[in-house]
């Protein structure tokens, strides 16, 4: 085989390697990899969360007798907190419904000159 023949064969081989059907930038492939990474991160997050929850459940189960005793000791004092909590909730609800806190905040903005001129 002549030197020209070898060179031509080299060129044909080089063309064979070039024509691999792949693009320099393939957004779909990059997206698939990003998706795979996100799935993997989610899986690890769920595993970690599951582990934390399992540990918390075991701790809670182990502490149950102690917690029941503690609740029994404070039960009388906690009973007084009930009506106070109801009153607090009613007052906060009235304030939110009437918009009084927002009006007070707007007034403070005016005093600081934050409101744009009309």
């Amino acid at each position: 085989m002549s030197e020209t023949g070898v060179t031509q064969a080299d060129d044909r081989l080089a063309r064979f390697w070039r024509e691999d059907g792949l693009a320099d930038h393939d957004g779909a492939f990059a997206l698939a990899v990003a998706h795979g990474l996100a799935r993997r991160r989610l899986r690890w997050s769920l595993i970690r969360l599951g582990g934390v929850m399992a540990v918390a459940a075991v701790m809670l189960w182990a502490m149950t007798p102690w917690l029941i005793g503690l609740a029994g000791r404070f039960a009388d004092r906690m009973a007084l907190l009930g009506p106070a909590a109801v009153v607090l909730v009613v007052v906060i609800s009235v304030l939110v419904i009437t918009g009084l806190p927002a009006a007070l905040l707007a007034g403070a903005d005016d005093a600081l000159g934050d409101r744009p001129p009309a």
Partner: peptide, 20 residues
């Protein structure tokens, strides 16, 4: 992850061609 994404973009062709 953005930097890694750019690495994937830059080298995906070489890796895929090799594997194919």
């Amino acid at each position: 992850p953005v930097a890694f994404g750019r690495l994937v973009e830059r080298h995906q062709r070489a890796v895929r061609a090799f594997l194919r």
